[in-house]
Design a protein around this nucleic acid. Structure first.
Lengths: 345, 345
DNA sequence: TTGAAAGCGCTAACAG
DNA sequence: CTGTTAGCGCTTTCAA
């Protein structure tokens, strides 16, 4: 193994001091132009690469931000990460990413790891089960900026970038009502979770505001998997006296599963008998026929925005007060054939 | 800002030496059980978190591996990363991920950064344009294990985990032939790229082995975007004397776009008039109707396998020779309605 | 079982 | 413009 070159090696060869080498390599104005060149040339020649561990230890900065998401491979998060990464790399920061797999204890481990690695900032979309910000305290205490995105817990007075979830389902539901739908069901997620609670609220509010009757049995809270969704739909369809003419799903995966089920295994037509709406605008929702009406959450923008907010804090060194900022991203209703036969496709 | 606690702080408070604290915290047998407890309790109480920068600098290990992919948000890669992350976290390693956005210069920057951060190993799926392993040399020279996955360049004698691409398109094409298709087109990617070249070869070989006639005009090489694919398809359909009865696409995105185009804007029926096959088994391909016949590349497995291979090297410290291992993952043909009306849905 | 001391590679006062 | 010196926080010999 070729021993790694250090500034001392360069210094010895060039017969100057290692501090001069260090300055030369970081383009300090306090070193002669000729020496600078000599150093840089030699550095290149020997394949010198600065040891960031040492450098970071010394400067107490890592130029690295940590990103924690439940699942990297989820469309929403991978898009958001894309946005985050773009901003970070523009600012010369590196990004380290971990997934909690929606496990609170894993999330804790990750956060400890990131703290030990001395990230300069943290972007996190907490697990479903995260009910408070206790585990983020070590960051706050040491003035390491934290920005939550997409998901957050109640009463969190931390900075965050979130979607207007309530408004989103409100928009969907209102749209369905305008289509003449009157018996609108809602396929919900875990209602203990702030996000799904909000989405459910938007749905209910829209019904209420439009004087549409609502029954508790219209809301089904399930584990958000395709098979669970189909199961729930079957149950719903069994009650012949209370058939839905529309269903607002809390995400696209379940909505798509239900559409597939309806078209392949039942006689119900989408959207005429039963309209189906999703949430997320997954790529697949534009590919199927009819297309799935859904909400675009602009994940890429959310990533960019939260990242920009973080860097504002990083730059100012949290100088101001612990000002907690909240940016609410506006959802976009994408109307496709699954709720409206007037729409082509 | 609460000053960060160090082992020296603990040492001072407990009136012992910092080296003892260090040993206690890393559970060295060379420290008394009682002291160990005292240290750990106090550490917890004060919220001590080891500074990994210092620790890593000292031990010259970071317990971190680097992962470089073209696009994080691409289904294949996010699944692969999932697999990688799983193995790494089992072994107690952290993962730092970057995307090259298929830019060779960005890839180079990333690699330099990872080297400077002293990753203990590297997993990389190079850009399209990467034609040699020059920029990986610094890792090799310093005996930092490198494993390529999915993509690789020609003549690379580095360890890698790849898909049997040629076999995959061979399987697809053969399947189409068995369906009675005779005029089979191929929508290819950049044929300078090893991977797409291989896929094209598989297609050609299958035709040849089955005595099916082949013309150069059957292969269209395009930029792999949905709109380009539709464009190419339109062109193909213009030549009424040479209409295809099947088309083998080099990925799902293009295949799905073509299916959508055919069903919405033409009279051609899929699969009876024109069968369509893709490559990747994107989630959408199972959701549309008819389903898209495609290849499952087992990205999660590829991630796991390459990660396991890397850790074998990391563990052995590259001890053996520079043995370069290659694992070829077998593709799985997923037959759906887009190529076979006998398959339900 | 514990302490003393050195040093990983780098940066940044301070001096000259 | 350059050198000297100290030290970031940790681990690890060596010595007791």
């Amino acid at each position: 193994m070729t021993k790694k070159i250090t500034i001392h090696d360069l210094a010895r060869i060039l017969e100057i001091d290692s501090s001069t080498v260090s300055r030369a390599l970081s383009d300090s104005p306090r070193v002669g132009i000729k020496t600078k060149e000599r150093v840089k040339t030699m550095a290149k020649e020997l394949g010198y690469q600065r040891n960031l561990l040492a450098s970071n230890l010394r400067t107490n900065k890592t130029m690295t931000i940590g990103v924690v998401v439940p699942f990297i491979s989820r469309h929403f998060f991978s898009e958001a990460i894309d946005g985050i990464e773009q901003i970070a790399s523009e600012k010369g920061y590196r990004v380290i990413i971990s997934q909690s797999r929606d496990s609170f204890s894993k999330e804790n481990e990750i956060l400890d790891g990131m703290f030990m690695n001395r990230v300069d900032g943290l972007l996190i979309s907490p697990t479903q089960d995260t009910r408070d910000g206790e585990h983020l305290n070590q960051f706050i205490e040491h003035k390491i900026p934290v920005v939550l995105f997409d998901r957050f817990y109640e009463n969190s007075n931390m900075s965050k970038v979130i979607l207007a979830d309530r408004k989103a389902t409100y928009m969907i539901t209102e749209h369905l009502i305008k289509q003449g739908k009157r018996c609108i069901f809602h396929l919900a997620g875990d209602l203990e979770s702030k996000m799904y609670k909000e989405r459910c609220l938007g749905y209910k509010n829209a019904l209420f505001d439009n004087g549409i009757q609502y029954k508790d049995s219209y809301v089904k809270s399930i584990d958000l998997y395709a098979d669970k969704a189909v199961e729930a739909m079957k149950e719903i369809l069994e009650d012949k006296d209370n058939l839905p003419d529309a269903i607002v799903c809390v995400n696209d995966v379940t909505a798509l599963a239900i559409m597939k089920y309806l078209s392949e295994e039942t006689e119900y037509n989408v959207p005429d008998d039963i309209a189906v709406a999703g949430f997320s605008n997954e790529p697949a929702s534009d590919i199927i026929n009819p297309g799935l009406t859904t909400i675009d959450q602009h994940p890429f923008e959310i990533g960019k925005t939260s990242s920009e907010m973080l860097f504002d804090f990083v730059k100012d060194g949290y100088s101001g007060q612990l000002s907690s900022k909240t940016v609410v991203v506006q959802p976009e209703l994408i109307i496709r054939g699954s709720t409206s036969s007037k729409v082509k496709v």
